[in-house]
Amino acid sequence: MKGQIRKALSGFYYVQSEEVLYQTRARGNFRNRKITPLVGDEVVFESTSLTDGYLLEILPRHNELVRPSVANVDQGVIVASLVEPNFSYNLLDRFLVTLEYKEIEPIIYLSKTDLTDETETLQEIVEKYQKIGYTVIAATEDEKAVRELERLFPERLTVFMGQSGAGKSTLLNRIVPGLELETAEISESLGRGKHTTRHVELIPIAEGLVADTPGFSSIDFLDIEARELPKQFPEFVAASSECRFRECMHVNEPQCEVKKQVKAGEIAATRYENYVQFLEEIENRRPVYRKKK
């Protein structure tokens, strides 16, 4: 039989197949072959009952995320809080780069807008990212924003991402009353929330599937190579055809169109500054040595 893993918990994988949910385990050779099933995987499995089945094969993935552990994701909703925790251009751009690299469509959802009077800052954020081409939803009117987000769900697998305490679980509880996902209290000493979502589960919402996932406050670029980084900034890609050098890194090269547009205010300075920081992180990271199979 074929199906999709909807939940992974305590070594069991719950597979949805033709409206029926089967509890399964991975075959022993999965571990020997270093195959880890992920929520979102399309699989081939066998089952003698609803609670006694085995995964036989993981079908090819379109993409996969490590944090959160989800496969075959169509779009990622980055929930970015304006206050408590405070908004960070750097963190938002980290999420965007990660999603771009995985070929996952980003959606920016700005939460807790009712807790700040900084309307100019809010408008600046919205305009900056809409100009690049991103979908940006600001929760200035809660119900309207929730419905706007919900319209993007049908027939797509959506992952919620963002810093702990930014409001991911609260937002999902608003979309689906009665879901009652546990929400986090903000730790005042750390300025960030406690982890509350302890496993990944795909929830059927608005004719699509949504994964509520653990929040975290930092992302390390472990897979992206330096040469690949400029391609994860859509506005850099658009400008780079005018750069003097074909593989321009937009840092030290002369006649660089990206730097020219940054200076002219056509590309946001915050985006360029974060790019330079990310590039430095990638170039200075320690090499990862993988064991030969």
Rank of each mutant, 00 (worst) to 15 (best):
Arg6Tyr: 15
Leu9His: 13
Ser10Ala: 15
Phe12Ile: 11
Val20Ile: 14
Thr24Tyr: 06
Phe30Ala: 13
Phe30Trp: 00
Phe30Tyr: 09
Lys34Arg: 15
Lys34Val: 06
Thr36His: 15
Leu38Met: 09
Gly40Ala: 08
Val44Leu: 15
Thr48Trp: 15
Thr51Val: 13
Thr51Phe: 15
Tyr54Ser: 12
Glu57Asn: 10
Glu57Ser: 09
Ile58Val: 08
Arg61Met: 05
Arg61Tyr: 03
Arg61Cys: 04
Arg61Asp: 00
Leu65Gln: 07
Leu65Thr: 05
Val66Gly: 03
Ala71His: 01
Gly76Arg: 03
Val79Glu: 06
Val79Trp: 04
Glu84Asp: 12
Leu92Thr: 08
Tyr101Ser: 10
Glu103Val: 10
Ile104Trp: 00
Ile108Thr: 05
Leu115Pro: 08
Gln123Val: 02
Glu127Thr: 13
Lys128Trp: 00
Lys131Glu: 10
Val136Ala: 07
Ala138Phe: 07
Ala138His: 08
Thr140Tyr: 12
Glu141Gly: 08
Glu143Ser: 12
Glu148Cys: 06
Phe153Glu: 06
Phe160Asn: 03
Ser164Thr: 14
Gly165Glu: 07
Gly167Pro: 08
Ser169Val: 04
Thr170Asn: 11
Leu171Pro: 08
Asn173Phe: 04
Ile175Leu: 08
Pro177Val: 11
Pro177Ile: 14
Glu185Lys: 15
Ser187Cys: 11
Ser189Gly: 02
Leu190Thr: 12
Gly193Asp: 03
Thr196Glu: 09
Thr196Pro: 10
Leu202Ala: 13
Ile205Asp: 00
Glu207Phe: 15
Ala211Cys: 07
Pro214Thr: 11
Phe216Gln: 09
Glu235Asp: 15
Val237Asp: 04
Ala238Ile: 01
Ala238His: 01
Ser241Ala: 06
Cys243Asn: 02
Cys256Trp: 03
Glu257Ser: 15
Lys259His: 01
Lys259Glu: 08
Ile267Phe: 03
Ala268Asp: 11
Arg271Gly: 08
Glu283Ile: 12
